[in-house]
């Protein structure tokens, strides 16, 4: 194969692999910018992977499956917002409890719906939809514009979130709630509403990230389908500096490592594949060393706001 053709193939793969990381990290970022920090990503992705898979399997439409997965993610987001923003319970502890609950739920749902089968049921995987004109751009057309609809949505979402947060009044309100809810509240921003909305939408994005896995990769659901991508997306959110555009760029690294590890397994480079499987996690730990230095997290990240007490609780 021609070298440039190989580069295009690899770049295509990186973009394809980037999707679940970016979706989950943008969801984490969105809630986080309003001060709500969930650690339930892994569980939300698991439960929405199963919901998305079953939804697509029973309705025969990937679109409805993805919609149901978003609904599931949004519901977990709603529960998280209720426990933390309304009941003022510790965000981290609730996030952990929801992680285990949703992870357990994912297996439970699959067992109730499908049970144990010799041949797992399959759904068709996503088709590439070339975008007219844009697909003809040399290099970029192949890499970016002959992909599946999730890829387009992820790019569109990242640009949209950047515009929302940095170019609109609503975005300013969201950021102010994460930086100083007391000041935001006194200026008439509805802190509770902003926190609910961002957490629910964030949950929906994580749900979409989960649904992508069976729809783009496997066509079926297995218990280990998420493989830590939820946790990695938290690291990505830090590494990406809690901002939509830098998260997208940082995800190139995460996806690049995953693609490299995968390709190295297939082609075989003399390293036992188990050590290649470790690579994404080791690389993530390594990039967190600079990542935690430059990431300025929202000042009220992970802290609940109690109006009655005029401060955190």
């Amino acid at each position: 194969m021609h070298v440039s053709q190989q580069i295009i193939t690899l770049a295509r793969l990186v973009i394809l692999t980037l999707v679940p990381y970016v979706l989950a990290a943008q969801g984490t970022m969105l809630g986080g910018r309003a001060g709500v920090f969930s650690v339930a990503q892994e569980g939300i992705m698991l439960v929405s992977a199963v919901v998305g898979f079953l939804g697509a399997y029973y309705t025969g439409s990937l679109f409805y499956g993805a919609l149901l997965a978003m609904l599931a993610g949004g519901l977990v987001g709603l529960a998280f917002a209720y426990f933390t923003t309304t009941l003022k319970m510790d965000q981290f502890v609730i996030g952990l409890a929801l992680f285990f609950a949703t992870a357990g739920l994912s297996t439970l749902i699959y067992k109730i719906a499908i049970g144990v089968t010799l041949k797992p049921p399959l759904i068709p995987t996503l088709q590439d939809i070339p975008i007219p004109l844009l697909e003809r751009i040399p290099f970029l057309g192949d890499i970016l514009f002959r992909q599946n609809v999730f890829v387009y949505f992820t790019i569109f979402l990242s640009v949209g979130l950047w515009y929302l947060l940095y170019r609109t009044g609503l975005g300013l309100e969201i950021r102010s709630v994460g930086e100083n809810p007391l000041a935001a509240d006194s200026l008439g921003v509805n802190v509770t509403l902003v926190r609910y909305a961002t957490t629910i939408v964030g949950g929906m994005l994580m749900g979409l990230a989960g649904a992508y896995l069976p729809m783009a990769y496997t066509g079926t659901f297995t218990e280990d389908i998420v493989r830590g991508r939820g946790w990695l997306s938290i690291a990505l959110t830090y590494f990406g500096g809690w901002a939509p555009h830098t998260i997208f760029l940082a995800a190139l690294f995460f996806a690049g490592v995953e693609v490299f590890a995968f390709r190295a397994q297939v082609t075989g480079i003399g390293i036992p594949y188990q050590f290649l499987l470790m690579l994404p996690y080791i690389a993530t730990i390594l990039v967190m060393i600079p990542g935690f230095r430059w990431a300025r997290e929202p000042a009220f990240l992970g802290k609940n706001y109690d109006r009655e007490k005029r401060g955190i609780s």
Partner: peptide, 23 residues
């Protein structure tokens, strides 16, 4: 040494151990 949150690193070490035990 680097003030990296132990929450993430302890979780990521789990995934590394899955491959190690397999090896």
């Amino acid at each position: 040494r680097f003030r990296i949150s132990e929450v993430l690193t302890t979780v990521l070490m789990n995934f590394i151990s899955f491959s190690l035990i397999n090896y």
